[in-house]
Design a protein around this nucleic acid. Sequence first.
DNA 1: AGATACTTGACTAAAGAGATCATATTTATA
DNA 2: TATAAATATGATCTCTTTAGTCAAGTATCT
Lengths: 141, 141
Amino acid sequence: MVISARVHYACVAMLELAIQHDDGAPVAIREITDRHGIPGPFLVQILRSLRALGWVQSIRGSQGGYRLSVDPTTITLLDIAEAIGSQEAGCRTEGKGTPIATMLQEQWDDAADASRSILGQATLSGLVERTQQGDASMFYI
Amino acid sequence: MVISARVHYACVAMLELAIQHDDGAPVAIREITDRHGIPGPFLVQILRSLRALGWVQSIRGSQGGYRLSVDPTTITLLDIAEAIGSQEAGCRTEGKGTPIATMLQEQWDDAADASRSILGQATLSGLVERTQQGDASMFYI
DNA sequence: AGATACTTGACTAAAGAGATCATATTTATA
DNA sequence: TATAAATATGATCTCTTTAGTCAAGTATCT
Ligand code: FES
Ligand code: FES
């Protein structure tokens, strides 16, 4: 479970869209990049991936932008990390199956499962709620 | 917590040395590479790191090899992964500290801690015991 | 002496990460 | 309808890390 910049930015973007989910207007890329110091063209790449997943919807032209197209209670950080992040490398000694390698693989899997269990509980809506409790800024209309 | 080939090989080597810990004779690199298909010169690099940590001891010359120089009950997979693996990248939005980034960082930390907790319980001696129960091969004299 | 085995430092190839750019297309609005 | 504001797309690029390699040297046992 390696959290690359790509994954982090994807999560930031999804959270920003979740915050303005009830609002009607789409969110422009600029709004997100300005707020978080993310390189614009890089975020474009990432949003394309998110759109391909069906998680966001894009509106072109003036006043365009992006909108969340899924229920924020159903998407977790785990979903984003696994969809956007690089594929798990997989066991290198696959096929050899020495007792030691097999047992080690179990340990790595156990450790990864523990991580996944945490991230799988972190829904977008849950996190949005938390950040809005934390600081009292107003995002809702 | 990314488990690279380097970390995996280090764990394999430490476990092989732990298995023959009570035995007097040192273990040659060849024994380990043959058994696990690890590139020889690569394992040499890794054993140098392990020696620098004070975890193994090398005996040169004919009949030479490596020996564990620590108590296998005190070293865990977590210790090896953190010592041999790459440094944690650290937060990219450090200093900005937007509420979202801060909150995300907490989630990544929580997930990493969960992994660490698992790997921190896996001592070399514990794992050796498990592999020897699993298959009945005789390593002890 | 000769075989065996570790020592050391430098080196290389391939992959992945993190962007960046130029050009095209769509849409609201003045 | 002209214009500005946005996204769309595909290619390219640089940097770092990872994994692996090589050659020449040194120590020790028999
Ligand atoms: S490569 Fe197989 S367990 Fe690490
Ligand atoms: S870069 Fe700061 S939490 Fe991901």
